[in-house]
């Protein structure tokens, strides 16, 4: 993305460059927002609802969200299910393998905070946001497929407010963290430490 960043900086400083940049942004965001391919990081119960979401009754393909098991093809990682300490290095590594720009949806209470497994257990990571920058949180144990559908639509709003220039930050109401969150850049480049995968 270094080339795109340089281009964005150069454009921004030239007269009239801002108009070109916003036009490019509009096209890029339109394209990105309508083809959010999913990396289905389904580990536990929520994976069943993730599967249900992509099958006949809910049919996520119509939103352009096609589940792809290869992280290199995908834009958004849907963490559906409990992440244990044993599984966390693998999730971290898969996240690192996804190309930028990328987003993360924490689906279900386990991915949000550990949920029912927050207390009294020794092996569960208390929320995937301990090591991934989460864009959308979906509560529920498990959430209904409609909730995931809502999350994809919310994420689309968020994607459409982003710019290819890192210096242009526009606030989105109700969706956290804001674009330009420093966490986003850090985790993307982090090497998978302690990975045994």
């Amino acid at each position: 993305m270094a080339g795109v960043d340089d281009l964005a900086k150069a454009l921004e400083s030239t007269p009239g460059g801002g108009i070109i940049l916003t036009s490019i942004d509009a096209i890029a965001d339109w394209a990105r927002g309508y083809s959010l391919w999913m990396m289905p990081m389904g580990t536990a119960c929520c994976a069943m609802e993730l599967i249900a979401a992509s099958f006949s009754k809910f049919d996520f393909d119509r939103h352009g969200s096609i589940p792809r098991p290869d992280p290199r093809h995908t834009d958004v990682m849907v963490v559906a299910g409990t992440i244990t300490h044993k599984m966390a290095p693998a999730v971290k590594r898969l996240w690192a393998q996804m190309p930028d720009p990328k987003w993360c949806i924490a689906m279900g209470n386990c991915a949000v905070s550990g949920g029912i497994f927050y207390y009294d257990t020794y092996s569960v990571v208390r929320g995937v946001d301990e090591f991934l920058p989460v864009d959308i949180y979906i509560a529920g144990c498990p959430p209904r497929p409609e909730s995931l559908q809502d999350a994809i639509l919310r994420l689309r709003e968020k994607v459409r407010a982003e710019s290819i220039s890192p210096s242009r930050v526009r606030a989105v109401e109700g969706v956290l963290p804001l674009p330009g969150d420093p966490l986003r850049g850090e985790t993307a480049d982090a090497a998978p430490e302690g990975s045994d995968v």
């Binding site: 580990t43 536990a44 299910g81 409990t82 244990t84 044993k86 599984m87 693998a90 497994f117 207390y119 009294d120 257990t121 020794y122 092996s123 569960v124």
Partner: peptide, 15 residues
């Protein structure tokens, strides 16, 4: 195995 070990049997002792 063990990538989804959540300690349910142990948790039951505290419920």
């Amino acid at each position: 195995i063990g990538h989804l070990h959540r300690g349910i049997e142990k948790m039951a002792e505290n419920r």
